[in-house]
């Protein structure tokens, strides 16, 4: 095979993959900007009329900002707790003797393998016992439990790459163990922390199943649940659903694009000779 056909195949492959994932997204972006009649028109109209009717109705009729706020608190809280716990656990596992650390990491990974549906019963009963149903912490807690394994893995692998001499230098310079983690290792691990944080945030932001079960009170519901409950008994307000989905997705896309540079940048350059 020559180089040119290879390249064409490569471009074609990338194009197909992108089209496959982006087409539905583009379809609902377009739907969000259509008016009521355009959405149900047959044959379908590809280009929207750029009406903002759906957006204004999500805000006025469905109180979208209120769901958004709940999502921000739950996803933000879960991310914060996961990253703090994940950094502590990941650091310990990165520096413990290899054998035990590996076994522990495997155990943590095994915990992450449980399907949600298997744990949802006990989780619900536990939250009911604690009186945490319909509270923010009641949703943050299972989110932390579910995202922690991946965060620990990402951070443990990242911390392992950090030269140990940097910590030794910090310890001799007068830091405690925790001090050397906070003052030297964490600032240098920003790319790893951002990666773990974004993955956690995306999970918590999009999670539907637990949110639906735990938050039965509309005052506490998050965005995905809120959107799902837009539909009435006889109508499905496609325009509003599309508009609300777009509002939900936008912050994620914005965040990933914003931090992409930081994720890629290797901050640790220059620590060691060379």
């Amino acid at each position: 095979m020559g180089k040119l056909p290879n390249k064409i195949l490569f471009i074609l492959g990338v194009f197909l993959a992108a089209a496959f994932s982006l087409a539905p997204f583009l379809w609902f972006v377009s739907a969000a900007f259509k008016d009521q009649t355009q959405i149900t028109a047959i044959p379908p109209e590809w280009l929207p009329s750029f009406s903002v009717e759906a957006f204004s109705s999500t805000v006025t009729q469905h109180g979208i900002f209120h769901y958004l706020w709940n999502s921000v608190i739950v996803a933000g809280g879960a991310t914060l707790v996961t990253i703090i716990l994940g950094a502590l656990a990941g650091y310990a596992l990165a520096r413990l003797s290899r054998g035990w650390a590996q076994i522990t990491l495997m155990g943590i990974l095994a915990c992450a393998m449980f399907p949600q549906i298997a744990i949802v019963g006990p989780v619900w009963r536990f939250l009911k016992f604690m009186g945490w149903l319909n509270t923010y912490q009641g949703l943050i807690l299972p989110y932390v439990a579910l995202t922690l394994p991946l965060a620990i893995w990402i951070l443990a692998v990242f911390f392992r790459e950090m030269p140990e001499e940097l910590e030794s230098a910090a310890l001799v310079d007068g830091c405690t163990r925790l001090g050397s983690l906070v003052r030297v290792i964490i600032p240098l691990s920003a790319p790893g922390l951002f990666t773990a944080a974004i993955l956690t945030f995306i999970y918590a932001w999009n999670e539907f199943f637990l949110a639906l079960l735990i938050m039965t009170d509309p005052a506490r519901q998050t965005m995905p649940v809120g959107i799902a409950l837009f539909q009435g008994e006889h109508t499905i307000p496609w325009g509003e659903i599309a508009a609300a989905s777009l509002i939900t997705t936008a912050p994620l896309i914005f965040m990933v694009l914003l931090f992409q540079r930081r994720i890629v940048t290797g901050l640790s350059a220059g620590a060691i000779k060379g």
Partner: peptide
């Protein structure tokens, strides 16, 4: 005080 082979300067 210790001087390390890799110098271990704080890069940030």
């Amino acid at each position: 005080a210790m001087v390390f082979q890799s110098y271990a300067l704080y890069p940030h």
